[in-house]
Nucleic acid binder design. Sequence first.
DNA 1: CAACTGAAAACTGTCAACAGTTTGCAAAGC
DNA 2: GCTTTGCAAACTGTTGACAGTTTTCAGTTG
Lengths: 233, 233
Amino acid sequence: MNATDDALTILRTRSLSGVLEREIEKAILGGEIPPGKRVNENLLATRFGTSRGPVREALRALEGLGLVELIPNRGVFIRQPAVEEAIEIYDVRTVLFGLAGKLLAARITDAEIARLKGYLEQMEAAARSRDFDRYYPLNLAFHEFIIDACGNATLAAQYRGLVKKLHLFRARSLVQGGGLEVSNLEHREMVEAVTARDPERAQRAHSDHVARAKARLLAAYQKAEAQAPRLTN
Amino acid sequence: MNATDDALTILRTRSLSGVLEREIEKAILGGEIPPGKRVNENLLATRFGTSRGPVREALRALEGLGLVELIPNRGVFIRQPAVEEAIEIYDVRTVLFGLAGKLLAARITDAEIARLKGYLEQMEAAARSRDFDRYYPLNLAFHEFIIDACGNATLAAQYRGLVKKLHLFRARSLVQGGGLEVSNLEHREMVEAVTARDPERAQRAHSDHVARAKARLLAAYQKAEAQAPRLTN
DNA sequence: CAACTGAAAACTGTCAACAGTTTGCAAAGC
DNA sequence: GCTTTGCAAACTGTTGACAGTTTTCAGTTG
């Protein structure tokens, strides 16, 4: 994509409310506006130098994404998923990611295999040196790559929406729970399955990976709950 | 839910743009505004006796649902999924419905089993007498019941969104393709699997059902394409 | 001192108007 | 006759203002 294309894309996808939607989403996911809190339309409008109209439109779009909740005459509130919802999301993610693995195994190119293996090696290196700051973005890119390369845009959109909602989960710090090495063993099996171009095996490997992440989260959560029960309310 | 509750719910969920969203969605899914066509904000505003503000908000919400597309300075257009997207949707639906079956098998009550069997018998009766007009709403209710009873609201929301998008598929009349009897055999296996409270079997039965529906759609589509190629553009 | 009451402030819901862009159409030029 | 150009109508994007509701808080009462 060259500079002209880029400018055109910007012009085509601009529209104040579209930009606002992304900015507000960033503010929400970045934790700038804490979950449960009401969003003040006037504040946002003055902050971005616009009127309330576009802000309201952006908020309605975010409501569709499930990031905020709209209560008539009271305003929009940042959603705050309970554990139960986080579990629901993990269950859905499990089958979606499994499908991504299955589809990927059926269509992956040699170049893509090489790239996956590259991620894997880097992650294993980072895990060996316990370098979590290097591991985390690699892990993210690895999963993003699979979701994109599977070739199903509908799946990718749904998956991304779920991950965003999970970011609002109050105990999301626990999501990281579970050792780097354990996770990497699962990653290796995923890569081997798609390398073998075995859809069924890949589906199992990919969904098992998310299912185990769910189990790790639950374990960490129940442990945290036992230590500080107020976290669960 | 009594009358007071009902009134409260209405009051709480009203808000002009919320009502508009549902009304406009109805107009779109009902085919009143044909796919590909631009939606005129002024027309909608005068039709519902409001100003353009709430209409725009409702349209932004519908954009999030994937029913319309927003092109800056040109307006919103009813989305028109290509075959490729319909296929994507069916693939995602396959795993989602499979998950619904799995979850349902693990939690279904005797009363719910009885209800499912009731649907099944009525559908079989309708199929025997080739009464499609009676079969169709039963089939819909049967699937809705499974999605609701599985206990995963996230799954249900995603599933419903996909079904709505499928309604915009130009050749959606083909979705019905496939005999009533064939479909009912699959329904019977689904019900038997959840009755046996066997999650794995139920998951397989439920996802196979959608996967076969996808195959039937594809076969019908390719047949229609051969007869009238312009349909595919 | 705690609970209640009522008015003021803050905020959301809606509207009508204005600015800027796109689209449709008719006249001019080749 | 066909393309091009320029204008006018239609429509979208955005704004500021007003109406109605909720929230806050000081004053009052038991």
